[in-house]
Amino acid sequence: MNRLNTRTLTHLDWLEADAIHILREVVGQCANPALLFSGGKDSVCLLRLAEKAFRPGPLPFPLLHIDTGHNYPEVIDFRDRRAAELDARLVVRSVEDSMARGSVVLKHPSESRNKHQSVTLLEAIEEFGFDACIGGARRDEEKSRAKERIMSFRDAFGGWDPKNQRPELWSLYNARVHQGENIRAFPISDWTELDVWQYIQREGLALPPIYFAHPRPVVRTKGLLRPVTPLTPALADDQVEEIRVRFRTVGDITCTAPVESEADSIDAILAETAVTTLSERGATRMDDQTSESSMEERKRAGYF
C-alpha cells in the first residue's frame, strides 16, 4: 500500500475528469435533469463530456434548447444534426411561443429577445418538471458568474440569490431541491475560453461554420462589429463593410457580434485566443455592456 503516484493528469484531463464527475453527480442526485444545448462551442464541449460520462449507455437526460427565433440557421442545423447523431432526445421551446401566450411582452418589436429566454426556460422547466438544468456557463466569462456555485440553487420563481448561495465544499455537491425549485449545474465552470478551444482541438469536435473566418457585412458600432442581417438591417447612415469575421460566442443574432479574424481552423483560432486582448463577452456581447450588473440582474431573474 501507499505507493506514490508517479503519473499525473494534464490540465485538460483534469478538467475533463472533473466535469464528468459533476455530470454524474447531477444524474445521481436529480430525478429529471436536462442538458441545455444551443449548438454553441461550450455546449458542444458539454455534450462530448456527457458522452464520456455515460457511454455506452444512452444520455440520461434530454437536450433542451431555448430558441429566441433569432439564431443563425447554420447553428440550428448543427444543433439538430448533432442531436440526431447522438440519438439524443431534443426538446426545443421558443420565445416566440411565449410571446404568443403573452408571457413574454417585448417593450418594442426590435427589443432583444435574449433576456426573455429566462421566461421560456422557466416555462419549459415547469412543463417537463425538470429539477436540474445542466449549462455550459463558465466563471471566467463574467464577474457575477465568477461567484456562482457549480450546483446553483434556483427558487420556485427561477430566481438566483447571490448573497445567499449554498456553501459548496470539496466535491460534495448538494443538488437537493423541493418541488418546483431547480438546480443549474455548470460542469465547465472552471474552464476558460482557451481551455474550451484546446479541448475542441484535442477531441476533434465539430462546430457550426460561423465559428470560423468567413466574409460578412458588418457595421462598426461602439467598438463592436454589428452583423448586417435581415433581423439587424443597416440603418440609413450606417457604413456597411464586408470583412472576414468569426464568432467567438454564438447566441441571439441581435446581441452577438463577430470579431475580425482570418482564423479558419481550430489551430488558428487557438493561436488568436492565446494572444487576444479582449475578453470573450467584452468583444462580442452587446447586452452585457448596458450596466455593470447586467448579467447579475438577468441571472437573478432566472437566466442561466
Partner: peptide, 11 residues
C-alpha cells in the same frame, strides 16, 4: 499553436 509547450504540469 506550437507555441504551447508540450509539457503540461497540470493544474
Amino acid at each position: 499553436p506550437h507555441a504551447f509547450p508540450q509539457i503540461d504540469h497540470g493544474l
